[in-house]
Simulated scan of single mutants.
Amino acid sequence: MKLSVLDLVPLRSDQSTGDALAASTAVAQAADRAGYTRYWIAEHHNMPAVAATSPPVIIAHLASRTSSIRVGSGGVMLPNHAPLAVAEQFALLEAMHPGRIDLGIGRAPGSDPVTSMALRGPAGRDDTDVQRFPQYLEDVVALMGADGVRVPVPRQEYVLRATPAARTEPALWLLGSSLYSARLAAAQGLPYVFAHHFSGQGTAEALATYRREFVPSARCAAPTTFLTVNASVAPTHADAVAAALPQMQLMARLLGGLPLRAIDLVEDAAEVELPPRLQELVEAGLARAVLGAPDDAADQLRRLAEQFEVDEVMVNPIGSAPRGTDADTAPARVATVELLGAALL
């Protein structure tokens, strides 16, 4: 089974943005050493606990500090950006690091409505951009290619290209957590990733729909898919749960509509008392995650891959840290990556 990593560049209460980026760099280097397949950066905006606001910038940084692992987006939220801008960014990344760049694209805004409006700027982009998502997706694909896109203008045909001389193109993946994304990936013949780590709902139906409706394309001859899962691995099960608890409490606050903040340290999370409805969300999140000592966690991942018939799983290492941890490190997240890698790769 292939293993990969999803990284939101989480920000703990003891960290600056620079600290969080340094910690994620160490996690990426650990995954590179362990033989993981890919390392993807998510896109979120205006969230106190997430420093992954610009995947292309972080990808350039991480790709230059690793040697063989594929680095990409998980994903770029396309309604927030002009297709040409996305195509240019990832075509340049591919030119810098040929054969190592993945472009994962999603449809969700990755932010609140006010932030989404600010991202789209004064040009008048609105919710119709979500409706035009399939066309935007096709535009990005074409713009990254050597032939570019031909735009009809009066008395001539204007050619747009993401770079002047593309030799190779990033690998394109469609991300989603719904039947809409599964059907779109199938119809366009694209590889597909299901965000199982977010809610754990609808995974089997989405993957079955994608495989059943898949139309082969020049980019992808057969259905190609994997899924994501939260993971915390430590020498003991209790240590793994303690490290994961701050992230699960944060997700409960998000789903419950409470004000967000940076991720608590382990000791602070242990003292938190949430309302019963939010505590239920915490318990549900822990139940869906891969948690435990290395051998047990490896078995959980194998069962997950077998259940959903995938040969690759992307883990989101969610461990926080105890008080006194160096701010620019993430030892629990590094341990998750290293322990799983030793057990499975």
Rank of each mutant, 00 (worst) to 15 (best):
Y192H: 11
D239E: 15
S178N: 03
P134H: 04
A162R: 03
A52M: 06
A51M: 07
A342V: 00
L6P: 06
E94F: 07
D264S: 14
I59P: 09
R100Y: 12
Q201K: 13
P259S: 09
A63S: 12
G124I: 06
F90V: 08
A118Y: 04
R303G: 00
V5W: 06
A31Q: 09
M96S: 07
Q135E: 15
A287I: 03
S217P: 12
D268P: 01
L93V: 11
S116V: 03
V272M: 08
H81N: 13
P164N: 03
V71F: 07
L6C: 06
V50I: 15
R167L: 12
A166K: 01
A162G: 03
V76T: 13
E271H: 13
T325V: 09
A28S: 11
A327C: 06
M251R: 13
R125G: 09
R70F: 09
L301H: 01
T115S: 15
A187S: 15
R323C: 02
G285E: 08
G292Q: 06
A95Y: 01
D102A: 03
E88A: 09
A218C: 00
E312T: 10
R120E: 02
R323T: 13
L119F: 02
D239N: 02
R211E: 14
D139K: 05
W173C: 01
V290Y: 06
K2W: 04
A118T: 01
Q29D: 02
R132Y: 00
S24H: 04
A42C: 09
A252K: 02
P191Y: 02
G341Y: 03
A297N: 06
